[in-house]
Structure formats: structure tokens, C-alpha cells
């Protein structure tokens, strides 16, 4: 293929776009309080928020997998009415402002929400609890898993599954032994993106679950509050979250994006 010269009218805005995305991140890296970083990141308040973040995002991922895999399969394989509608429903949390997601969760699962009385009757109260933070994280994270997996499932020839069926395998066994292994790259990528989204969740959490150290104050919430009177501390935590996000993207290279290839 002939290598085309890049016209300046495209190159300049493209370079501008790169700078636009890069400068704020460089700001975090260069302004982070490197000399006191170790001390700040091992501060008990930070480790507590980190522990909580891992617990919340871990549970959110688990819920996303348990509910999201069947939903992705349903969308890709089953004949159900209103499929475009369901797909839009799955996409909605991805495009909604997270605070709106929080308001929606309050009106749905809050004390005075649609299911509030029912939840109270079985002794569950989600707002202001760690479970509430998990719900908020799962709500915004699950779509990433569903969309990623559905795309992969739709690309797998049903012949393999039909072959397994003719050999007498049941639907669950086929899903577990044939379909999911074939969709593994997309499953891993979707799970990683969902987990990263859950780890970074802020708006829905603070709106629905509130902010209490040790119970609902995850790392992003702590970053926000630290910014009020300890910008250096907030920058240190931001660096930590930035490093996590960069690690995930690096690990996904070649799985999620075909370019660069051979990541495994």
C-alpha cells in the first residue's frame, strides 16, 4: 500500500487532540508530590479507601458477570421480543450522567423508591451502605461487559454450538465449554473495562450511597473531598488511579484492540 503523506490540515488538529488529552495527565504526573508519595499512599485513610474500592469494584464485577453474561447471551442468541429496546436499556447507564444514574437508583431502590418498601420488608437498606456503593458501581459497569461480550458472541458461528448440541450437551454446558471459551478475549476485555469503570465510579455512588469513610467513601470520593483542602493529597491519589487505568489498558492491548497484536 502506498504511504500517503499526512496533510497539514489534519495533522495539526490531530496533534492538538493529542496535546489536549495528554496535558492534564502530564499535570497529574508532574505535580504529584513524589517525595511524600509513599507516605501519602500508605496513610490509613487512603488504605481504607483503597480496600473499600477493591471490595466494591470486586463485588460489582462479580454481579456484572453473574447477570451480564446471561444477558449478553440472550441478546446475541435468543429470540426475544423488543431486543433493540433491551439493548438501548443496557447502553443507557453508559451514556447517562452518573449523577442521574444516582438519582435513578434512589428513586428505584432508595428508602422511598419504587422497591423501597419491599427492600425494607426483607431488611435491606441500600443507601448509605457498602451494598449501595456496590449497586451503584454495578449499575454503571455491567453495560461494558454486556456490550463487549454480546459483540463477540454475535461473531461466533452458531455451528460450533449446534455441533456440541448434536453430541448431547445441554445449553449451560455449551455456554460454559464452547461459547465462553471462544469469546474469552472479549469476556476478559469486557470484565476489565467493567471493573475499571466500577473502580472509578463517583457520581452515582456519592448520590445514591453517600460518603462515609470505611463504608461508602471509595478512592474517587476521597480524591474529590481531599481536593477541598489538600490538593497535593488529591493529586497523589489521582496518580494511583491513573496508574491502575494505564495498567489495565496495557494489559488489554492486543485483546481489545487488534493493533499491535500478539499480546498473549
Amino acid at each position: 500500500m502506498k504511504r500517503r503523506t499526512v496533510p497539514l490540515t489534519l495533522l495539526l488538529p490531530a496533534a492538538g487532540a493529542i496535546a489536549f488529552l495528554l496535558v492534564p495527565l502530564l499535570g497529574i504526573v508532574t505535580r504529584a508530590p513524589w517525595s511524600s508519595l509513599a507516605g501519602r499512599l500508605t496513610d490509613p485513610a487512603v488504605t481504607e479507601a483503597l480496600r473499600l474500592s477493591l471490595v466494591v469494584s470486586g463485588w460489582a464485577l462479580l454481579i456484572s458477570l453473574l447477570l451480564g453474561i446471561p444477558l449478553a447471551w440472550l441478546l446475541a442468541r435468543a429470540r426475544v421480543p423488543g431486543k433493540p429496546l433491551i439493548r438501548s436499556l443496557v447502553l443507557l447507564p453508559m451514556v447517562l450522567p452518573p449523577t442521574v444514574a444516582g438519582v435513578a437508583l434512589l428513586q428505584g431502590f432508595g428508602r422511598r423508591g419504587l422497591l423501597g418498601d419491599w427492600l425494607a420488608s426483607v431488611g435491606v437498606s441500600l443507601p448509605f451502605s457498602t451494598a449501595g456503593a456496590v449497586v451503584a458501581a454495578a449499575f454503571v459497569a455491567m453495560p461494558f461487559l454486556v456490550i463487549s461480550l454480546e459483540g463477540a458472541l454475535a461473531g461466533i458461528d452458531p455451528l460450533y454450538e449446534e455441533a456440541a448440541a448434536t453430541m448431547g450437551a445441554g445449553p449451560l454446558r455449551i455456554l460454559w465449554l464452547v461459547t465462553l471459551p471462544m469469546a474469552r478475549p472479549a469476556l476478559v476485555a469486557g470484565a476489565a473495562l467493567a471493573w475499571a469503570r466500577a473502580l472509578g465510579e463517583f457520581g452515582a455512588t456519592i448520590t445514591f450511597a453517600g460518603n462515609l469513610p470505611g463504608t461508602t467513601q471509595t478512592l474517587p470520593l476521597q480524591v474529590y473531598l481531599l481536593l477541598q483542602n489538600d490538593p497535593a493529597g488529591a493529586t497523589a491519589l489521582s496518580l494511583l488511579l491513573l496508574a491502575v487505568a494505564a495498567t489495565i489498558l496495557t494489559a488489554l492491548r492486543g485483546r481489545w484492540l487488534p493493533v499491535g497484536g500478539g499480546g498473549r
Partner: peptide, 21 residues
């Protein structure tokens, strides 16, 4: 023993208005 420490005072008001608090 508060159940939440909201990021601003208006958020406290909304939690009470919604009867969550």
C-alpha cells in the same frame, strides 16, 4: 454516628428531602 458526610451542604438537604436521611 452519621451515615454519610456529603460533599456539600446542598447534598445534605437533598438526602433529607428524599427522606433517605
Amino acid at each position: 454516628t452519621p451515615v454519610s458526610q456529603e460533599p456539600n451542604v446542598r447534598a445534605v438537604l437533598s438526602k433529607v428531602r428524599l427522606a433517605e436521611a
